[in-house]
Every structure is written in C-alpha cells, then in structure tokens.
C-alpha cells in the first residue's frame, strides 16, 4: 500500500510501474489481500449483496478481500477512488447501476465504460406497491384514478434517476396524462416506511425490499414491473395492463464487481473466474432467493451488453421527461 503510493507520486517511476507488469505477476496473483470498495453505505442493498458474495470469493481466490464502504454522490466517490488506484487487480469496485447514468446526469466523466465487469452478481425486479388502504386493487385502477385526478396522488420516490423515478418515467411515457406528485426520500427503505405510514400513496420498489411488507399485508402490490409473474407475488405483470412496457423489460437495479479497464488480461481472467464461480455458488444463489433478487453470474461481453441496453433504455427515458442534463445522443448512447 505505502510502497506503491510512493511509486505513484514519483511520476516517472509510476509510469514504469504501470507499463512493466512483470511476467510472473499474474501467476502469483493475488499475492496480498484485495481491497474491495463498496459504492454505497453500510446496510444498503449493494452492501448486503457484496458482503454476501465476498466470503465465497475469498474462498475461490485463497486471499482476503477487505471491504470498505465509500458512499457519497450516488456512488461517484467510490468509483473515483477505485479509478485513482493502480490497475493491478487488487482494487475491486462493488457497485450498482447508477454509474451508467453519470453521463446523462452530468455527475462524472467516469462510468462503467472505464471498468471491466468481472461479474454482474444479481438484479432486482421492481414492483408497483400502494398503501394498504388505497382504493386501488391493481395497476389499472391506479392509472384510471391518476388520470381522473392529476397531480393529487403522491408517489414515493428516491430522487432523480432512482428506481421509482425511472418507473414513473415509463408510466408517463406509456400513459398519457399520468401526472403524480413525486416525494423523494433518502432511499427505498425510508420511502417504503413512509408508504407504510400512509404519507405517500404508491411507489415502485425493488421486490426484495417490499416483499416482507407485502407478505404481512402492510402494503399491497399492484403489479410486477416484469413480463412474467414473480414467484411469491400475488400481482400480475405490468405488461398485462400496459403491453407497451415490454420494450423496457427486463429492467431493474443490478449489482456487480468491476476492475479498472487497464488491468492486465491474465489477472482479469483469474479474478473473473473466481467471481463468476462465486456468483454461481449455491450459497450465493440461496442468498439471492432470500434477498429477493435474481442471480445473474454473467461477465465480460455478456455483462457489457446487458449494461448498455440498460443505459439506452434509462438514459433516453430520463431525456424524454427532461431530467437529463446531457443529451444521450451526444454521449453516444443509442436509442433502442
């Protein structure tokens, strides 16, 4: 740690260190503990998913993986930190989907384009939920009500670019005249709590976070934002009400592990193998089922394809509702 920082500072030496990867380096890798940076705070979804997979990764690599939360700026701080470290495979970024929107929201020049996806661990499925005494039994009733009473219904949200915001953008695109008041909270947990307390009327939340509250009847589910039924959820997929949603789905938050793009190939291969194995380990899959997320376990090109599709859908939705600071077209994000 100390040694390589010193190298970095003495300009020329740093360049040398970056270019001359000793041939033996890849075989020895990992020779010391790896450092994992979590983009989000302790107790959040990214944190939980990361801490669930980390012990399995340690097992596969035979080396410690020390995890640190570096939250802030919807993940910008953590990403910047890992990007400022050497591309030697010892610094791993654990993040969620947010960096795919840094460009359109004007938050950072960095994005996952500057990193290599070792693995996409899991993805979540959003569900549309309402307070338990709301007068709607399904998505159609909600939509009719909103159309008849524009701007009076309160939707729980998590801020611009958050999951409820994007689902709202989808609804607004598919249902002309869908006007609600979005009340943003500090995350989906606090927003769901407000929904449970009846301070907002409905919202979209990831299935894993809403599941237990639905099961206990403290909030009710209107629809799954998916093309198929979710196991354990007694609500139809949204595509039954709004077939237009098909073009966005599957959509939802995802979690993954990344290294800097410049990391030498053999090291990436080693890491990728360990992470994919860990993500497909039965213990992690069991956690996913319990946590209400869909295990993915894909890496490399396949992961890249998934992420790019996600970005195209989301960036353009944001642009269409006027929430994008930068035009996605100018950033080279194709419209699907």
């Amino acid at each position: 740690m100390m040694v390589h920082r010193r190298h970095l500072l003495s300009g020329a030496a740093a360049l040398g260190a970056l270019c001359l990867v000793r041939p033996g380096a890849a075989q020895d890798f990992p020779a010391r503990p790896l450092q994992g940076t979590i983009q989000w705070g302790a107790g959040g979804s990214t944190d939980a998913v990361t801490r669930a997979v980390a012990p399995i990764v340690e097992e596969k690599l035979g080396q410690k993986l020390v995890l640190t939360n570096r939250p802030g700026g919807t993940g910008v701080i953590g990403m910047q930190y890992v990007h400022s470290q050497r591309a030697d495979g010892y610094n791993i970024l654990f993040g969620a989907e947010n960096p795919m929107l840094y460009g359109v929201l004007g938050l950072s020049e960095l994005s996952y384009d500057d990193f290599y996806p070792l693995v996409l661990l899991a993805r979540g499925t959003p569900v549309l939920v309402a307070r338990k005494d709301a007068p709607w039994a399904d998505a159609k009733a909600l939509i009719d009500h909103v159309k008849a009473h524009p701007d009076t219904v309160k939707m729980g949200a998590t801020g611009v670019g958050g999951l409820p915001f994007v689902v709202h953008a989808m609804l607004a695109a598919e249902v002309p005249g869908f006007k609600v008041t979005q009340v943003p909270f500090d995350g989906d947990g606090p927003a769901l709590t407000a929904l449970e307390g009846g301070h907002v009327d409905f919202m979209a939340a990831v299935w894993g976070a809403a599941r237990e509250r639905i099961r206990a009847g403290r909030i009710k589910a209107l629809a799954a934002i998916a093309t198929e039924r979710i196991e354990g959820l007694d609500a139809p997929p949204i595509t039954e009400t709004l077939p237009g949603f098909k073009k966005y789905l599957p959509w939802g938050p995802f979690f993954g592990a990344f290294v800097k793009k410049e990391t030498p190939g053999p090291i990436v291969e080693k890491l990728e193998k360990a992470f994919v194995e860990a993500a497909n380990d039965p213990r992690f899959k069991e956690f996913c089922a319990n946590f209400g997320v869909v295990p993915m376990g894909v890496s490399g090109e396949e992961a890249r394809k998934f992420m790019n599709r996600w970005r195209s859908i989301t960036a353009w939705l944001l642009a269409d509702v006027g929430a994008a600071k930068n035009d996605p077209a100018k950033l080279g994000i194709p419209r699907l």
Binding site: G43, A52, R211, N290
Partner: peptide
Amino acid sequence: LGIPGDAVTAVIIAALFIHGLRPGPNL
C-alpha cells in the same frame, strides 16, 4: 416491522438477510 431505527440496526438487518433470515413484519 423490519424497519431499521438507525444506521446500526440497518446493518444488522443486512446481516440477518445474509444469514438466511427475512427481516420484516413477519420476522
């Protein structure tokens, strides 16, 4: 209810999930 009262209980909730429990109103 499975709702964290502060930052520490939020982390404990995450820990329960990882240990295979389902924190929530039915806990």
